[in-house]
């Protein structure tokens, strides 16, 4: 019986792969339908195989629940998931993200105006940006309490340095020629900043914003492992793991994935509107 299921799984895999090879090497491979269809077929095949193998081989639910069960759980506990989403993503991650990015923007302007600060702060910033900043979570949870404020604080610290490094790099993007041109027009620092240098920095700013969007979610979720009220995605994940309710954990992971890609997608969309002039967008 289990052998039969394995053979069936292999056949499905081979069939789907064959289909993808045909589409990918066919004449219509460059159409939008093919470019969406091929990864969709791949993902769907994985889901079907997952379902088939878990159910067919009777893999215990505490190891891996089948996708249909996760979907059931997801649909069945929408209010809980929504409350967790609001607590972790909207209150924790988003507020921290906004504060962190604004703070980095302010600091970047200071750094930009002073050469001394640039030479002093940038190596420190680059260094800190590579550190495992999630580690500050226990300290910040101790300072700001268990509620979302401490999660927002972790997110602020996590997004600050990547944003600072990216904005500062972006503000260096203009050439001397362009800056001299602004000077010949007797433009003040702020005129040059708003009309020339900030627009030129936008590709870098958005790069930083995109990196930070993932970091913000990670920070908010991981900070909840160190203490949280009885709501929140990190809280739900760690307690459900403790109860071996893995379908709930997977449902939260689906929420995290949806929130992460929506967040990223939104920023990418704004980027497209703002940096329409950049070669990578054309």
């Amino acid at each position: 019986m289990s052998l039969l299921i394995l053979i069936l799984a292999l056949l499905i895999w081979a069939g789907a792969w064959r289909l993808n090879v045909v589409i990918a090497n066919g004449r219509r491979a460059d159409t939008r339908a093919a470019q969406l269809g091929v990864p969709a077929i791949f993902g769907l095949t994985l889901l079907i195989l997952w379902e088939l193998i878990v159910r067919g081989l009777g893999i215990p639910l505490v190891i891996l629940p089948p996708p249909t069960m996760i979907a059931d759980r997801f649909m069945g506990s929408l209010p809980i998931l929504w409350a967790d989403f609001v607590q972790t993503v909207v209150k924790g991650a988003l507020s921290g993200y906004v504060i962190g990015c604004l703070a980095a923007f302010g600091t970047a302007i200071l750094v930009d105006r002073s050469d001394f600060l640039k030479r002093g702060l940038m190596p420190v910033g680059n260094f800190v940006a590579a550190l495992p900043i999630v580690g500050t979570a226990p300290i910040l949870v101790m300072w700001y309490g268990f509620d979302w404020q401490s999660k927002a604080a972790v997110v602020v610290v996590m997004v600050f340095f990547p944003m600072l490094v990216n904005i500062t790099a972006g503000l260096q993007e203009t050439t001397t020629m362009q800056r001299d041109q602004m000077k010949t027009w007797a433009a003040s620092y702020w005129q040059g900043f708003w009309k020339l240098r900030l627009p030129a920095a936008m590709p870098f700013v958005f790069n930083g914003l995109k990196i930070s969007s993932t970091l913000a979610l990670i920070g908010a979720i991981v900070a909840e492992f160190f203490g949280s009220p009885i709501v929140g995605m990190g809280f739900r994940i760690s307690t459900s793991v403790g109860q071996l309710a893995l379908d709930m954990v997977w449902a939260e992971i689906v929420v995290a994935a949806l929130a992460g890609s929506a967040f990223y997608g939104l920023i990418a969309l704004i980027e497209k509107k703002v940096t329409f002039w950049h070669p990578s967008q054309r």
């Binding site: 505490v62 190891i63 993932t214 990670i218 893995l246 997977w250 994935a257």
Partner: peptide, 19 residues
């Protein structure tokens, strides 16, 4: 890369522990 993969860390630990 847009997904906070780290969220599944506790589950991996516990699942592997059970096997």
């Amino acid at each position: 890369q847009t997904i906070p993969i780290l969220a599944i860390a506790p589950m991996i630990i516990v699942v592997l522990n059970s096997v």
